[in-house]
Amino acid sequence: MNRLIHYLCLLCFLSFSQALYFHIGETERKCFIEEIPDETMVIGNYKTQLFDKNVNDYLPSSPGVGMHVEVKDPDGKLLLSKVYSSEGRFTFTSHTPGEHVICLYSNSTKWSMFAGGKLRVHLDIQVGEHANDYQTIAEKDKLTELQLRVRQLLDQVEQITKEQNYQRYREERFRQTSESTNQRVLWWSIAQTLILTLTGFWQMRHLKGFFEAKKLV
């Protein structure tokens, strides 16, 4: 029995890992942006708590409180859209580099009746190499302490390489934007000159015809 409680506690402790939290309203949608290179894993852990008047504190909410998790890739395509329970973990891997938008919103309105319309959400998003769970990796691959360190360093270097590669891609886009602005300015000045000349020409021709018709010249 004692041992059981021990394990139970260990479980609570593990799931109790604190993260930043914030409050959301009934149908409020909170979105977070993660700008990541391609082929990068993102892990999000969240936990919701409801305000309990009896205890005057936030308590873990019932599993009935559902949470919509929606992830959109840079092209606006849905990468993940699921309803999780009051506590959950979502994972996705990016396929295109860029801004991924992660949105969270609660599905039910039942809780808002007694919670004053506020739900507390603990959220932790880990990206890339930070998302790896090295304890599991070490156990699975039977790595020694030293091998694990090398593995960690390798992952970090890989992350930096990806980031650098993405940096290059972004720089290219930046330059394209700047070049397109430059082109637009150039073409606009040519077009402006043309429009001005044409308008002037038309004005003169039209007025000439008008004056002649009115016998003013």
């Binding site: 890992s17 939290y21 914030f22 409050h23």
Partner: peptide, 23 residues
């Protein structure tokens, strides 16, 4: 195990609104 964790978030702040995070 939390001690060394980094939290980083990018969020949208609506006009005339505020948002608080707690740790």
């Amino acid at each position: 195990p939390k001690e060394d964790k980094t939290s980083a978030l990018t969020f949208e702040l609506q006009d005339a609104d505020d948002l608080c995070f707690y740790e």
